[in-house]
Amino acid sequence: MSNINTTNSVNTSNAGVHPETAYRQKTAWVYLLNLIFYFIPLWFMRDDWARVAVSLLLILPFLYGYFWAYKSSAVQGKYPIALMLVTASVATIFTSGSISFFSFAGFFIGFFYSLRSAIISLILISIWLWLLNYMIGYEAYYFPLYGMLITFVVGLLGVVEHNNERIRRQQRQSNDEIANLATALERERIARDLHDIMGHNLSSIALKAQLAEKLLEAGELAVAKQHLQELADIARNSLTEIRQTVSNYKHKGLQDTVNQLCGLLRQKEIEVHLEGKLPPLTPLQESQLGLMLTELVNNMLKHSQASQCVWCFNTLDKHLVVNLSDNANAKTIKEGNGLKGIRERVSLLGGEFSYHINDGYHFSISLPLEAEQVSEPNTDNDTEQP
C-alpha cells in the first residue's frame, strides 16, 4: 500500500500522466493482496450464503474508493477515505474481515495528512471500532483490538511512505536543478570559448581589411598585399582553432553518455561503481562505444534486476578494455539483436566482445588504440566523476 500520486491535479487517464505516476497506478493492484484477510472469515461462514454474497458485493464500493484515493490529492483524499470507512463499517455487520478495509483507509490517512491529524483520525477510528464491536456484539474483543493494531501500524506505514515520497520528489527537483545548472554552465563555457577564439581574430581581420583598403587607395600595392596575406593567415588559423574546439566538444560526448547512463541506473536504485579513466578516442570509437554501453545498460534495466553494477575502464597492451558487471540473479544469456549489434560494432572497430555468468552478468569490450591514444591519456575523462 505505497506509492500514491500526490500531485494537486487529478488525471483520470494515462494521457499526460507522469510515467512514474502511471506506473504507481498500475502497481495499485499489487497491494490489494492484503484483501486476503477480508476473504478468510468468509470461508468459515460460507454456509451463510446471504452474508457472503453481501460481503462480496461490498468489495465493489471499496475498490472504487481505493483507486479513487490513488488518483487523488491530499485535499480530495478525504472523499475516497470516507467512502472506504463507510464501506468498512457496513461490512462489519456481515464479517469481521472488514478490518482489512479499515487498514487501507488508515494507510491513506497516514499518507495524505500530517502526523498529528493522522494520529487523531486513527484514534477516532479505534473508538469507532469499539462502538461497532459493542453494537454488533462480536465475542470477546478480538475485533477492536486487532483492528486498532492493524490500522495504527498500516497508518504509520502511510506516514513513512509520505515522507519517502516527499524525499523522492525533492531529489527529482534537485536533479532537475543540477541538470539545468550544468546546461547553463556549458552554454556559458561554449560562449566564452568562442569569444576568446574569435573575438580577437575577427577584430584583427577587420583592422587588416581596413588597412589593406586604405593602402590600395594610396597605391601601396606591395604593403597591401602583405597585409592581405596576413589577413588570410589569421582566417586560416581561426578556422583551425574553431575545428579543434568543436572536436574537443565532440570528444566529451562519450563521457556525457557515461554520466547519463550512470544517472539513469541510480534513478532505478542501482548502485554504480566506476573505476579507471577513458583515454582519448576517435569520433567513430566514441560514438560506437556509447551505443554499445547504452545497449548493455538497457539490457540491465530490462532483464537483470540487479542492485549493483561495476564499470571498469583500463588501458592494457594498447587496448581500451571496458568491463561491465552486475550482481543480478543471472540466467542463461540468449544472444538477441542487441548483443549481436554490439558484436558487429566491436568487429567494425577491430576489437573483441565477450561475456560470461559468474554471480551476475559480466560483459567485456576490448578496442585497439593508436599510439597517440595510449601515450596521451585524457585526464578530463576520469570516469570517477559521475
Results as ranks from 00 to 15, higher is better:
10 V>L: 13
323 N>W: 08
356 H>I: 11
257 T>P: 04
163 N>I: 07
308 Q>V: 05
188 E>L: 14
108 F>Q: 00
72 S>V: 07
219 G>A: 02
298 N>K: 10
133 N>D: 11
228 L>A: 06
344 E>T: 08
311 W>D: 06
129 L>R: 01
103 S>H: 02
208 K>N: 12
178 I>A: 09
30 V>A: 14
65 G>Q: 01
102 F>W: 00
270 I>V: 15
196 D>V: 13
325 S>W: 11
328 A>R: 09
104 F>Q: 00
153 V>S: 10
40 I>A: 02
314 N>R: 15
356 H>W: 14
376 E>N: 10
196 D>H: 02
23 Y>F: 13
153 V>L: 09
343 R>F: 12
325 S>V: 15
261 L>H: 14
245 T>G: 07
236 R>S: 07
35 L>T: 00
224 A>D: 03
225 K>M: 13
263 G>S: 15
376 E>H: 10
47 D>I: 09
384 E>L: 13
277 K>F: 11
257 T>M: 09
5 N>K: 12
275 E>H: 10
170 Q>D: 08
32 L>E: 02
2 S>Y: 05
282 T>W: 09
323 N>Y: 08
295 E>P: 04
143 F>K: 07
298 N>S: 10
49 W>P: 05
377 P>I: 15
208 K>G: 04
229 Q>T: 13
75 V>C: 07
341 G>R: 10
71 K>I: 03
101 F>G: 05
231 L>P: 05
378 N>Y: 12
286 E>P: 05
343 R>Q: 14
203 S>T: 12
259 N>T: 11
52 V>Q: 00
140 A>Y: 08
144 P>E: 08
58 L>A: 08
354 S>A: 14
356 H>M: 07
114 S>I: 00
228 L>N: 04
185 L>H: 06
352 E>F: 04
215 L>R: 02
32 L>N: 02
213 E>S: 09
47 D>M: 08
41 P>E: 00
321 V>R: 14
80 P>G: 01
277 K>N: 14
184 A>T: 11
281 L>W: 06
159 V>M: 13
322 V>N: 03
177 E>P: 01
158 G>N: 09
35 L>Y: 03
94 F>C: 06
8 N>Y: 08
91 A>E: 13
239 L>V: 06
319 H>L: 11
291 L>T: 06
66 Y>G: 07
187 R>F: 04
38 Y>G: 02
96 S>N: 09
361 Y>N: 11
26 K>A: 11
384 E>H: 13
193 D>C: 04
173 Q>F: 14
230 E>C: 04
40 I>Q: 03
54 V>W: 12
346 V>F: 05
15 A>T: 15
319 H>G: 12
95 T>A: 03
41 P>S: 00
37 F>A: 02
189 R>E: 15
242 I>H: 09
111 F>I: 00
175 N>I: 11
190 I>S: 01
44 F>Y: 14
149 L>G: 06
150 I>R: 04
204 S>P: 02
357 I>G: 06
371 A>W: 05
301 L>I: 15
317 D>K: 15
91 A>G: 10
52 V>F: 00
243 R>V: 09
307 S>E: 11
150 I>H: 10
300 M>S: 15
76 Q>R: 12
263 G>K: 14
